[in-house]
Each structure stands twice: as structure tokens, then as C-alpha cells.
Design a protein around this nucleic acid. Sequence first.
DNA 1: TCTAAATGCAACTAAAAAGTTGCATATTTA
DNA 2: TAAATATGCAACTTTTTAGTTGCATTTAGA
Lengths: 119, 119
Amino acid sequence: MQKPEKNPDNGKHGSDFSAMFAALGDPTRLAIFDRLADGKPRSISVLSNDADMTRQAVTKHLRVLEAAGLVQNHRVGRESQYAFCPEQLAEARAYLDQVAGRWESALMRLKTFVEDDEV
Amino acid sequence: MQKPEKNPDNGKHGSDFSAMFAALGDPTRLAIFDRLADGKPRSISVLSNDADMTRQAVTKHLRVLEAAGLVQNHRVGRESQYAFCPEQLAEARAYLDQVAGRWESALMRLKTFVEDDEV
DNA sequence: TCTAAATGCAACTAAAAAGTTGCATATTTA
DNA sequence: TAAATATGCAACTTTTTAGTTGCATTTAGA
């Protein structure tokens, strides 16, 4: 069987969100993101100190988080500080809320249907 | 520089959540998950019909979602139906809410600090 | 100014993920 | 029962990701 290639449409639902979830989908990155949630910006060196990997690896992770819009970077002196960035987090939450909402609605419709059927 | 290996501790924060985010971090999987949120179980064939890839690829994606606890599977006759599973979604939402809460608290403390300083 | 600290860049390796293909098996249904 | 449908398993290729290493550059400080 060959590659089907059916969908000529694009855009729609949460296809954009997958990149953000992917960014959070690595334990190291999630740990960094979690840590930065206290609002204090931290340099690459500081963030590397308690990671079990090299500074370069941490740098790459930070760039992935930055590309996903989850953290922001700005250079101060010789160091590069990364800080929490709440907008994308809000988007992710809104998306998951929306999915959960659809699920709840579906449940509700089912319940109503069953009740109507029982009368 | 060698592998640092600093952290002998384990567990704590959101390290478990990274697997779930990783499961949602693929566009195909997120699309499937999103689609199943209407509560209707669907067979592998049905889900494969509008994916631009083979049935086997979709099967693998479904197993990843299942391993993450995001969907459930049960065999009916010759077909294998996958259905939405809300528990893990709730966990993800709760986790993101908690992170957002920490961020808000940090903001609040900063605001208070600045105001106190201005008096 | 000379050195140490913080980072960047590029090339590389290794491992995991995504996807395909071919074939076998179970289940409907004509 | 024979054909068609739905799936499973295993081997394989390709692409991406995670991580390291070596070296160059920039900045802070003694």
C-alpha cells in the first residue's frame, strides 16, 4: 500500500498545538519549564548545573522551548537568560478545556438520550 | 565534558506528564485524539481513512495514545475500537493549571513588592 | 591586559520515532 | 465455503531527536 494522501484541506483544530505539546513532551524540557514558572529568569549555566547532561544539550532544549513560545530569551551581559512566557501556556490550557468541553457535551447528550428512552 | 550525572533524586513534579504531552505532541495523534472527543468510538479502519498514511502507521499512533492513557481500546467482533478516555486529559489540565497558578502567584508577589517599595 | 566564565557554532554519533511493506490470522457475509 | 473486511506481527528504511565534543567568541574582573 502506498501513501494515501487524502487530505487536501489544512488548518482547523489543534494541529498547531502539537508543536507546543511536543516541546513539553520531553522530561528535561518539562522540568525546565516547570522550574521557570516561579518567574525568575535563569541563565543557561544555572539551568545546566542540575541537569544530568551537558550545557549544549540544555541549550538545545531551551531553544525548542523558545521556538514553541513557552520561554523567552534575552541576553544580559555575557549571559543568556531564559524566562517563563505565559501566553502559550494559556493557549494550551484553553485548547484542552475546549476538548474537555466537547467531551462533556457528548456525555450530556448521551445521558439525555438514555433518559428520554427510559420514559 | 562527560555526562554530569548529578541528580540522584527522582520523582516529584511533572516528570510523569511529559509522556502524555509527548503523546499529544504529534499532529496525527492530536488530530485523532481531538476527533474522538465527541465520544464516539471508532475502528482503526475508520480512523485510517482520512489520515495520509497507512493503517499500520495509524495503529502505532493509537497504541501510543493508549499507552499514555488518552484513549481506550476494546475489540468488538473483527474490529478494534478506540474511544476517548478523559481521566488523563483531566490530569494534564490540572497540571497546567498548577503551573499557571505558580506563575500568577509569582506575579502577585512581584506586584506587592513593587507597591510596597513605592510607598 | 590576562584570565576565567558564559555562550555560540558545527560536526558528529547514537538512539528513538515515524512510516512502509509483506504476510498471516480472525471474522463477516454473500 | 469462499471472498472480502479488519486487524496483527515482524522486519525494514528513513527521518528526527537527544546528546556529545571540540573550538571559537564575547564579556567580566582581578
